[in-house]
Design a protein around this nucleic acid. Structure first.
Length: 691
DNA sequence: GTATAGTCACTTTG
DNA sequence: CCAAAGTGACTATA
């Protein structure tokens, strides 16, 4: 019998992907010994209590590295304007006086209280109030013009109706510049949840405002569903971090987090510019009249950029024609000036990389890569012969592995796993080709090989009587694929649970996929989870969570991951087995995370959580003691990135649904997956997984 | 068929 | 109130 390991919440641990590329030179861990990720009952399972802790305002502000603060325009223009346009000899001359180079004096932090940067202060719990409700201080809500009214779909429990939402005048972003430091564990978890919830709303709105397939009226609308989603959220005050301008990391956003849209960056406050690559507090709002940069996006849109990971030569903005060709000299203004001022004061900037991502669509993804310092700034001749500003950025030490390099590593790992990780692989497919894509087994920290000793189970084994039920032979007759009002759509309450890409649109108590009794083809949109794995998964050994699971591919939010498979036992059978100490899963104990997915109650006051089709309390257990699949190695978290959704397809017996796992966020490659296994039952003390 | 170039409709900020 | 920042979805072309 396994000995249970102490409960560890994945989210309290450093991102395991940071260790991915570390060399496999570590002492053996003899204490971790668990085949399934289980946990013992502890008080830490329950809701964290948020204890406000106020930090003194005074002693925590940051001061400029250089005490003297010359008027910047004067300083710059006087030192450069003479040779600015004389072209021939743009030397590599840093604008900053060497004596005042930020890094040369960065250790000397003055405590000058009259410093222009006294508004930098540590803030912890102040943000808590600011976050939750969208921090509206707007008394003036008004309709700007009657034509700017938007008709938006409003989901109610069974169908879509419409309502009219008027556009409002928005608040400007705050000018208050702050840095958030020393967040406690509870705070981190809180902000993570807020960010995740916000991104879920964004995704739901985006998917809901996508055009449905037909639209045969000939009126082809180009619909930017990302813009629609963000503007709806803005109307509701759901954009994050608008009441403070945060320099440094954004609470709840981790290094390596992935975004598919620029507007998504705006919504969470990671980067506030819809198009521009440099975000900054403008001089007009800054307390000392100097602009300060907060974040940059390295998108590859400037020919003079040189990105080598930890160091970046970043080109300032401007000087391009509408065809993105340099056509004139850049000026030291706007974001360019802000970057220079940030360098002057030694203030870090967030770096987001826009990268082409092979797979899915040909679009870009944005990766948050952490904080960088600006080392140098100079004026140079660009490739096109026009003057450009260049900034040398250096990544600050001690941060988690860059998301962009993990992406690249994972991409290479796809084609040549053994040459990139010559040791550690125990198996290149523990499913022995039973799954559509391989499930790898990796352990580079100890000698445990346990997952090799189980028979691989692709799908849950139900008792024969589960199939003997009246009505189990009915299905749709959509020979050419299901349409929106077909029989199977009706079974699901009149709408399909999945979008055209097979992503879960809204969680439901249970989903009816098309099955063997339906006439529709295999590529029907209502067949998703029954087709098995799409993303390559890897069971891996971790010092913190025992065995864990991660993906080698990017898993987009809402995508199906895998089934949680086992051998179904009735209550009586389970009682016998549990006395023998076998490992059982109790499906009814998983938290109802499906309810969060697609929850638009923050947008629509009349939103009701789907309650149809209803599902009776589940009264079975699953045995995974001999046969199991990849899912039972997934770790527990109270802030999980994977949800459990009940699905039926091969029979219609509501008592015995499949447990299907879907991504709750964009899960980067090599990041550990986690499920909320539920909290201990107050009376029995039992958990989803029990011995 | 697949990559690339071009075109168009957008939004927020300072 | 407007200029400036560039994307994302689509269409045409190589």
């Amino acid at each position: 019998m396994d000995s249970p390991i102490p409960f560890l919440d994945l989210n309290l641990l450093p991102d395991p992907s940071t260790a991915v590329m570390a060399a496999a030179t570590s002492p053996k861990s003899a204490t971790i010994n668990s085949s399934v990720n289980k946990f013992v009952e502890t008080g830490r399972l329950l809701t964290p209590k948020l204890e406000p802790k106020l930090e003194p305002f005074d002693d925590v502000y940051q001061t400029p590295v250089t005490q003297q603060s010359q008027p910047v325009q004067e300083r710059f223009l006087s030192s450069t304007s003479s040779n600015f346009f004389s072209n021939s000899d743009f030397a590599r001359t840093p604008f900053s006086d060497q004596n005042h180079h930020p890094f040369s004096q960065s250790s000397s932090i003055s405590s000058d209280k009259d410093s222009v940067y006294s508004e930098f202060y540590r803030i912890s719990q102040l943000f808590r109030t600011a976050f939750g409700k969208g921090s509206q201080s707007n008394g003036d809500v008004e309709v700007v013009d009657p034509d700017s009214r938007a008709i938006v779909p409003v989901p109610d429990e069974n169908h879509m109706s419409t309502m009219v939402v008027s556009k409002r005048r928005y608040d400007k972003r705050s000018s208050e510049l702050v840095r958030v430091t020393d967040l406690g564990v509870d705070d981190q978890r809180y902000f993570r949840d807020v960010v995740r919830r916000t991104r879920m709303v964004f995704d739901s709105l985006r998917v809901l405002s996508m055009p449905e397939e037909e639209k045969s009226s000939g009126l082809i609308r180009r619909l930017r569903s990302d813009l629609r989603a963000s503007s709806l959220m803005r109307e509701r005050g759901l954009w994050l971090n608008r009441d403070k301008r945060i320099v440094g990391s954004i609470p709840g956003v981790h290094i390596g987090d992935l975004f598919f849209f620029r507007m998504e960056l705006c919504v969470v406050g990671l980067h506030g510019q819809a198009q521009a690559g440099i975000d900054y507090v403008p001089a007009s709002q800054s307390s000392n009249g100097e602009p300060i940069a907060t974040s940059v996006i390295v998108s590859g849109g400037y020919e003079d950029d040189e990105d080598s990971g930890d160091t970046i030569i970043y080109t300032g903005h401007g000087g391009q024609d509408k065809f993105s060709k340099q056509c004139m000299h850049q000026k030291l203004e706007g974001g360019n000036l802000a970057l220079e001022r940030s360098m002057h004061y030694g203030i870090e900037v967030r770096v987001i990389r826009g990268m082409k991502y092979a797979g899915s669509v040909t679009s870009k993804i944005y990766v948050y890569d952490g904080l960088y310092r600006i080392l140098e700034c100079w004026f140079d001749v660009g490739k096109s012969g026009f003057g450009v500003y260049k900034f040398k950025l250096l990544r600050i030490d001690g941060q988690a592995e860059m998301g962009s390099s993990i992406l690249r590593f994972a991409e290479n790992l796809r084609s040549k796993p053994l040459s990139l990780r010559p040791s550690g692989y125990l198996s290149l497919d523990i499913s022995m080709k039973k799954e559509a894509v391989p499930v790898l087994l990796f352990n580079d920290i100890d000698n445990d090989q346990e997952p090799l000793y189980y028979e691989y189970l692709v799908g849950t084994v139900f008792p024969p009587f589960a199939f003997h039920q009246s009505g189990s032979g009915t299905g749709c007759s959509c020979v050419s694929g299901c349409v929106h009002d077909c029989f199977c759509a009706m079974k699901n309450g009149g709408e399909f649970a999945y979008d055209q890409n097979g992503c879960l649109v809204r969680g439901k108590p249970i989903i009816f996929e098309c099955g063997p009794f339906c006439q529709c083809p295999p590529q029907c949109r209502n067949r998703v989870s029954q087709k098995g794995l799409k993303h390559r998964l890897e069971v891996f050994r971790s010092r913190e969570t025992g065995w864990g699971v991660r993906s080698l591919d990017l898993i987009p939010a809402g995508a199906f991951i895998c089934e949680y498979a086992g051998v179904v036992l009735t209550r009586e059978q389970a009682q016998v087995l549990s006395m023998n100490g076998d490992t059982l899963i109790y499906p009814n104990r998983f938290s109802d995370r499906w309810a969060e997915w697609g929850d638009l109650s923050q947008i629509y006051s009349n939103y009701v959580r789907p309650s149809y089709p209803s599902v009776p309390p589940l009264d079975f257990a699953m045995d995974v003691s001999r046969m199991r699949n990849v899912a039972c190695y997934i770790s527990h978290s109270t802030s999980p990135n994977v949800l459990v959704q009940f699905v039926l397809y091969d029979h219609n017996n509501l008592m015995f649904p499949h447990l299907m796992l879907f991504a709750m966020e964009n899960i980067p490659p090599l990041r550990e997956l986690s499920i909320d296994y539920g909290v201990a039952d107050e009376w029995s003390g039992k958990l989803a997984i029990c011995n």
